[in-house]
């Protein structure tokens, strides 16, 4: 192995590694041989199952392609069409609304939940219960809530009736449909997200808390001064992952509102899917996907910059 030779180089500290300090001139290749070895299996998976299909998709966005007959090159026609497509702009707006509600509620609730789990109990039962919704497939969760929130038969509306309140058409009211879909997904992903954050909390050395406690810091202060800063790399990752996942909401809409009422829930991914598989307009769908990709990349880049995800404040601990 080459590792012996690398020993001579200074071991990379977290700081150096993340800030990309230029390597010593004598070792321009750094750990490259080892790195290639370590990255290779994942790289094969990446190239074959992600990169190649993505490039192919990019090419298809420049064609008229109905899936079943060969694509025909049309230049930027699909992108030009997109500019004047009111359903596309509507889809962006609706998706943004969904993401804001879903991420907002989910992030606050899951941080709260993770901290509670971390500070209050080590019970496996509690953690298991919280993760339960994630054990159920998305489509079933959507169907279950669709059934429970039914205007006429749903148990939730029966409960509202019983409390003397007006019934609510959760999925049928164009103002409520998106918040409803967003909250259903928050319900499913809350435990999952909380568990990711919980894993981050576990990485914070208890000694940090002990020191803070000795200084007489309250739980509240510790949360803002100790927990959140130390959690930053993990939080950054969780935010990037959940935001990207949130933009790609599809199943829940497909089995409940199917984009209705009157396009109120026609989120971008549902629109893309409908175009590609129901309307055989794959070229145009690919163009929409490419735009979505650029938007997501932009959002993720911004998030990473803002949260300085590459760094950890743990280095001094």
């Amino acid at each position: 192995m080459t590792s012996e030779t690398v020993n001579a180089a200074a071991p990379p500290t977290v700081e150096a590694a993340s800030r990309g300090t230029p390597p010593p001139p004598t070792r321009r290749l750094g750990d490259l041989p080892v790195a290639v070895l370590f990255v290779l299996p994942a790289a094969i998976g990446f190239v074959v199952f992600y990169l190649w299909p993505a490039l192919r998709g990019l090419y298809l966005s420049l064609t008229k392609y109905n899936v079943l007959t060969p694509p025909r090159f049309v230049g930027t026609a699909n992108y030009e069409r997109l500019l004047g497509d009111h359903l596309f702009w509507n889809a962006l707006k609706v998706t943004a609304e969904y993401v804001v509600i879903n991420i907002g509620t989910q992030t606050v609730a899951s941080v709260l939940l993770a901290v509670l789990l971390h500070r209050l109990t080590r019970s496996l039962l509690v953690r298991g219960v919280v993760l339960l919704p994630f054990l159920v497939a998305n489509v079933v969760v959507a169907l279950l809530w669709f059934w429970m929130l039914d205007y006429q038969l749903g148990v939730v509306n029966h409960a509202l009736d019983w409390l003397g309140l007006e019934r609510v058409a959760f999925f049928g009211d164009s103002d409520l449909a998106i918040p409803t879909v967003a909250l259903v997904n928050t319900w499913r992903h809350l435990g999952y997200t909380a568990l990711l954050i919980y894993a981050g909390l576990q990485m914070i050395p208890p000694s940090v808390y002990e020191a803070a406690a000795l200084d007489g810091a309250s739980e509240w202060r510790m949360f803002w001064r100790v927990t959140l800063p130390l959690l930053r790399p993990v939080m950054a990752m969780v935010m990037v992952l959940t935001v990207i996942g949130s933009f790609q909401v599809f199943d829940t809409v497909a089995v409940t509102t199917a984009g209705g009422p009157i396009n109120a829930t026609r989120v971008i991914y549902f629109y893309i899917y409908d175009l590609a598989f129901n309307r055989f307009n794959f070229g145009y769908a690919a163009a929409l996907s490419s735009v979505l990709f650029v938007i997501l990349a932009g959002v993720a880049y911004l998030q990473l910059r803002l949260t300085r995800a590459g760094e950890s404040d743990l280095k001094g601990a």
Partner: peptide, 11 residues
């Protein structure tokens, strides 16, 4: 007849 909200808010 039920409104569209009711008809589309359920199963």
């Amino acid at each position: 007849m039920p409104t569209m909200e009711i008809a589309s808010a359920g199963t």
